[in-house]
Each structure stands twice: as structure tokens, then as C-alpha cells.
């Protein structure tokens, strides 16, 4: 067994350790991406609204 295989095998516990790290990574990434998408969607709607609104002038644009 070479060193990469030894590392991946994790002393026979690879089937538990890698899924644990995988789940953590996927969940943290998903929550982060969900947050960014939500902000972009709101920003898009704000731009559309402020673009056609005369009174939007002087209130400041979207800080991104």
C-alpha cells in the first residue's frame, strides 16, 4: 500500500472519517452559497425598482 492509500484508509476508519468531513464541507458550502444567492436576488429586485423610480435619487445606491 502506498502512502496515499494509507492516508485514505485512515487505519480502516476511512468509511467514517471521510463522510464526516464531506458532510461538514457540503453543509457549510451550501449555507454560504444560499446566503449569497439570496442577497443577489434582493439586489437584483432593488436595482430594478430603483432604476425606474424617480424618488430613488439621493437615497444612495446598493452597496455591494
Amino acid at each position: 500500500m502506498n502512502s496515499v492509500e494509507t492516508f485514505l484508509a485512515m487505519g480502516g476508519y476511512g468509511a467514517y472519517i471521510w463522510p464526516a468531513y464531506g458532510v461538514a464541507l457540503v453543509v457549510l458550502a451550501a449555507i454560504w452559497i444560499d446566503g449569497v444567492w439570496r442577497r443577489r436576488e434582493i439586489e437584483r429586485q432593488l436595482r430594478a425598482l430603483e432604476g425606474q423610480s424617480r424618488s430613488a435619487r439621493g437615497r444612495g445606491g446598493i452597496e455591494s
Binding site: M10, G11, G12, Y13, Y16, I17
Partner: peptide, 8 residues
């Protein structure tokens, strides 16, 4: 005691 599972 826990072996490699301590990494979890």
C-alpha cells in the same frame, strides 16, 4: 484509544 477516528 480511538485510533484515527479522533479526527472526526
Amino acid at each position: 484509544q480511538q485510533g484515527e477516528t479522533v479526527r472526526i
